[in-house]
């Protein structure tokens, strides 16, 4: 018993030490695309990956989608929030963007995009909060709260079916590069990068999990995830992955997460927006 406890303690202490090491080394990495971006080859084509997916899951996903997505029922709450007056200026989203936000149709397909006002990348979630603070004089939503998720989900769902076309050129380029470097950077105690799993080993099995191909990672958030039993954002998923990698987890809507969201969404360029998603 004591031996076991001491062993556990040793592991814990060990992981703490290496966490500290990781943090120290992270500071040294300059965020410019260069030698840090590992040359990794895609393990298999997307068609092969789909075949593999069918072998593992069969028609389970289609059957699940047929029954409907629990997150769809929250869209009405998002709609109510868009029409609701909030803040000191007596405005609602609908005051500028039309009733039910109709003028926002197709807009979310261009997000995340470069915003000169913040000299960085704005995601839909961040933009909604900036709009509330700046234009409406209202309290920003807390990230990952129910209200924040449903309004983001509703605004994005207005673009459903519109092909994603995020810009990665011009002023957005340096941020795209930062996101890409982060995606390929080895980090955490396990020395994984996002890419080593989702590019090099996409389509392989990690125990009973099929490692997913990154082609559709950017097109369906916020999504209802069965594992969570609720709706969550893409950045919550980032944090989940980083926890499994035993790596440092940036905060919601931090600069690096927004850059990463831009990079991942740009991979899905050309694919239609499908919000809310439904995932296992």
């Amino acid at each position: 018993m004591t031996v076991a406890m001491a062993a556990v303690l040793a592991v814990v202490v060990g992981s703490l030490i290496s966490c500290a090491e990781t943090r120290a080394s992270e500071k040294k990495v300059s965020l410019t695309p260069g030698p840090e971006v590992e040359e990794l080859e895609q393990s298999m084509s997307y068609e092969e990956y789909q075949k593999r997916y069918k072998e593992v899951f069969g028609t389970a996903t289609e059957e699940m989608a047929e029954d409907g997505n629990p997150a769809e029922l929250a869209l009405d709450d998002g709609l109510d929030l868009v029409n609701a007056v909030a803040g000191s200026k007596g405005l609602s989203c609908a005051s500028c963007h039309g009733k039910d936000g109709v003028k926002l149709k197709g807009i979310a397909a261009t997000y995340p995009k470069y915003d000169p006002a913040i000299k960085g990348i704005a995601t839909v979630a961040l933009q909604i909060n900036r709009c509330r603070e700046g234009n409406m004089g209202a309290e920003p939503f807390k990230y990952e709260s129910y209200d924040q998720l449903v309004i983001t989900m509703y605004v994005k769902s207005l673009s459903n079916g519109v092909p994603i076309h995020v810009s990665i050129d011009g002023p957005a380029r340096p941020f795209y590069d930062k996101g890409k470097v982060y995606y390929f950077k080895r980090q955490g105690q396990f020395n994984f990068s996002c890419a080593v799993c989702h590019v090099k080993y996409a389509g392989y099995m990690a125990r009973t999990n099929l490692i997913s191909n990154n082609k559709h990672h950017g097109d369906h958030w916020p999504a209802y995830r069965l594992k969570w039993g609720k709706t969550g954002s893409m950045q919550r998923r980032f944090r989940g992955c980083l926890k499994n990698m035993r790596a440092e987890r940036p905060a919601f809507q931090s600069e690096i997460f927004r850059d990463l969201e831009l990079y991942l969404t740009s991979i899905a360029n050309g694919e239609p927006v499908q919000v809310p998603g439904l995932r296992m």
Partner: peptide, 23 residues
Amino acid sequence: AREFMPHTIMPPFGANKILTPQQ
């Protein structure tokens, strides 16, 4: 394992103190 394969996905169990030397 990076000594043999620099781009391996295998975590460095000893070097990153995931396991103790005894383990």
